[in-house]
Structure formats: structure tokens, C-alpha cells
């Protein structure tokens, strides 16, 4: 039982780390630019597709990784300059609509370019194995551990960036009070572009890291986008710390809910009923969690905004 719990905790953390990569970028975009970007999931999808394409061309996932992340980052910058920049002064509704249009476009454009079937991305050879712990009681795929490692490294980098650098100081200030930063003479347009590019790169990285374990296909970004929103709402908009805590929380709750809830239910009610309501409740669990958090703390666990 303990081994099972440890393995499931690892699964939950791995999902959480992937969500963190998505949420970190988006929470900054929301917090600093005050822009709702539904197309964040599309950037994740594009990152995965580029990883597939570049792995096929170069023959190496490790080479493809930086190329795909960079390309997604550039795409993010292009999107920001071409469309979103004009919307900063408009209300959220316009941003929702515009980025909704972008989702439709991207979901279709990948199908036109890469065809309607899912693409294949191999796990890098060195990581294509299972690792055993505790005398083989716990077996875990090496690649999933690599995802956790990359995610934690990115988290560390972001904490350093935010806490120790000038850019980070501006980001923090921007998240707390955007108008104040602008009033102080900071080039807020450049800061916005930078933050959006960073967010796009992180979404791309999440997509690239997910590509070897998930089907690379049209619409793959839609589901994770909604989970990312839940993470951000729980963590508090604009807070990297909140994003990390909430991402891991959601990852673990979702995983544990899926694996343990049916087991627990089976003890309480009869098997037929348990198998009927178990998955339903498990898939609603994180939304219930979100509702509870928001009822207690409407600004999330770690609100960044002061004004």
C-alpha cells in the first residue's frame, strides 16, 4: 500500500509539474499584462508538434527540445505584436474572443500541415527505461522523473529570476500594481512582450516535454488549458509561488482522486454503484476543490495583486 501511495504521489507531482510549466507563464501574463490568453493551450500544442517535426528532422529529441521551445517563444512574440498588443487597453471580453478565434485557427492549421492523425515522438533513448527503488517495489519510468526534474529546475530558475534580477523586480511590481510601474517610466510595452514571450516559451516547453508521453494531436491543448486555469485561480493570479503550490496540489489531488476514490467508494457502497459514480466524482474533484478555495479565499491562496 505504501509503495502504491509513493508511486501515485510521484504521478501526481509529475502532472503537477507539467501544469506548473503551463501555469507559470499564464499567471504572469494574466498578472502583469492583465490579459486573458486562451491561446496558451495552443502554444503548448504547437510546442509538441514542433518537437515531433524537429525530432523527425534532426533525429534527436534533445536537439529538437531547444529548437521547438525557441520557435514557440518566437511564435508567442509574433502573436503578441500582431494581435494581442492592440488589446491591452480593451476589456477582457475582447481578449477572450480574439484568443478563442486563435484556438480555432491553430487547431485547424496543425491538421492542415501535419494531417489528421496523431504524431509520434520517441522518448530519448537514455531515458527510455524504468528505474527501480526499494528493491523493485517501486518502478517508475525514467522519462517521467526527467519531467519532474526539468519542471523543478524551471521553478528554481523562475524564483531566481523573480527574486534576484531587475527584470524580476519589474515583474513583481507589475503584478502588484501595473499602473504604478508604468508611471515610474518603465517601458511597459517591452516588459509585456518579454513576459508574453517567456510564457509562450514555457508553454512550448511543457508541450515538448509532454510530446513523448502523449498523443501529439489537434486539440491537445484545450484540456490542459482548463486545468491550468484552475491552477491559476487556486494559486492566485500573478504568483509563481501560488502556481507551483496549486499545480502540485491539483496534480496530486487529481491523481489520488482517480486512483484512490474508486477504491474507497467500493468499501462504502456496492461495486456497481462505485464504478458508476467513482469516475464522475473523480473528474469533478478538482473543480470542487477550486470552489472551496474560492469560497474561503476569493483571490486564491497567494494573491499577488495589492491594488
Amino acid at each position: 500500500m505504501l509503495e502504491l501511495l509513493v508511486s501515485q504521489a510521484l504521478n501526481g507531482i509529475q502532472l503537477g509539474v507539467l501544469l506548473f510549466l503551463m501555469a507559470a507563464g499564464l499567471t504572469l501574463v494574466l498578472g502583469i499584462m492583465n490579459v486573458v490568453n486562451l491561446a496558451h493551450g495552443s502554444l503548448y500544442m504547437v510546442g509538441a508538434y514542433l518537437a515531433a517535426q524537429m525530432t523527425a528532422v534532426t533525429g534527436s529529441f534533445l536537439l529538437a527540445l531547444p529548437m521547438a521551445v525557441l520557435a514557440t517563444l518566437v511564435l508567442g512574440l509574433v502573436l503578441e505584436v500582431a494581435t494581442l498588443r492592440t488589446l491591452y487597453q480593451r476589456d477582457h471580453l475582447d481578449q477572450v474572443l480574439l484568443t478563442f478565434g486563435l484556438i480555432l485557427f491553430f487547431n485547424e492549421v496543425v491538421r492542415v500541415i501535419w494531417g489528421p492523425t496523431a504524431l509520434f515522438v520517441p522518448v530519448p533513448e537514455a531515458l527510455d527505461q524504468e528505474l527501480e527503488f526499494l528493491d523493485g517495489e517501486i518502478i517508475y519510468p525514467a522519462y517521467r522523473l526527467a519531467i519532474i526534474a526539468v519542471g523543478l529546475a524551471v521553478a528554481a530558475f523562475l524564483f531566481w529570476l523573480i527574486a534576484r534580477t531587475r527584470v524580476g523586480m519589474l515583474i513583481r511590481a507589475g503584478a502588484a500594481n501595473r499602473d504604478m510601474v508604468a508611471a515610474l517610466g518603465v517601458d511597459i510595452v517591452r516588459l509585456n512582450t518579454l513576459v508574453f514571450g517567456l510564457g509562450a516559451g514555457l508553454a512550448g516547453l511543457a508541450g515538448v516535454m509532454a510530446a513523448p508521453i502523449l498523443a501529439v494531436e489537434s486539440g491537445m491543448g484545450d484540456g490542459i488549458l482548463i486545468l491550468t486555469f484552475v491552477v491559476i485561480v487556486i494559486g492566485g493570479i500573478g504568483s509563481i509561488r501560488g502556481a507551483l503550490v496549486a499545480a502540485v496540489l491539483i496534480g496530486v489531488v487529481d491523481t489520488m482522486g482517480r486512483s484512490l476514490l474508486p477504491m474507497i467508494l467500493r468499501e462504502l457502497v456496492d461495486r456497481q454503484l462505485a464504478s458508476a459514480i467513482g469516475p464522475a466524482v473523480a473528474s469533478m474533484l478538482i473543480y470542487i476543490l477550486m470552489a472551496v478555495v474560492l469560497t474561503l479565499r476569493p483571490q486564491g491562496l497567494f494573491p499577488a495583486r495589492t491594488g
Binding site: N11, A210, L214, M220, R258, S259, G278, P279, A282
Partner: peptide
């Protein structure tokens, strides 16, 4: 029974 279009099955595979 898993959620429709669930992308990740690590929890179920562990069980």
C-alpha cells in the same frame, strides 16, 4: 473507467 479523452494514465497504470 477513465475520464473520456484523459491524456495521462500514470495513476491507473500504477494501480
Amino acid at each position: 473507467y477513465t475520464t473520456v479523452n484523459q491524456p495521462d494514465y500514470s495513476a491507473e497504470l500504477t494501480a
